[in-house]
Amino acid sequence: MLAIISRLYHGLIFGLAAIAALLIVFSIALVVLNVASRALGYGSFQATIATVEYILLYFALFSAPYLLHTRGHVMVDMAIANMSGLPRQILEALIYLLGIAVSLIFLFVSIEIMSEAIARGHFDQRSVDMPYWLLHAGYPLTFGLLTIEFGRYLVTRRSLYGSTDANEGL
């Protein structure tokens, strides 16, 4: 049972990262088709910009849990790397608790914002109007998973400050 939950959970985290990658592929295709259509005189799709803008948001949201899981978020681990024993454990625990606290705030506040936007019918004005709640629809899932990931670092022996792969970046 636990194994199944664990498999599903990991599937969710990696699945979201895969969706993030596909969203980028989709947005490239969309931009190219839009330019081609415009250049050939068929006009442009008014929704292109708004769609790509939302994709950028969801790309960030869907890759975040995967990055926390794989220690991919950039951080300065000089202080922690030079510590050991109890002080290090305490500092790590405090950092995980901070991560849990801010993720929970984002989780609950985004739900509030969404329900209010739905109740009052707010719109997000872009190249085409989008329902406002869609801006925050990815937040509960992302920040829920981030909360769980920080929680896992907190209660298990895994450390966020294990080996990191610094070979890739800007």
Partner: peptide, 8 residues
């Protein structure tokens, strides 16, 4: 500096 991931 304490090691909190930058985004957080």
């Amino acid at each position: 500096m304490l090691g909190v991931p930058v985004a957080f």
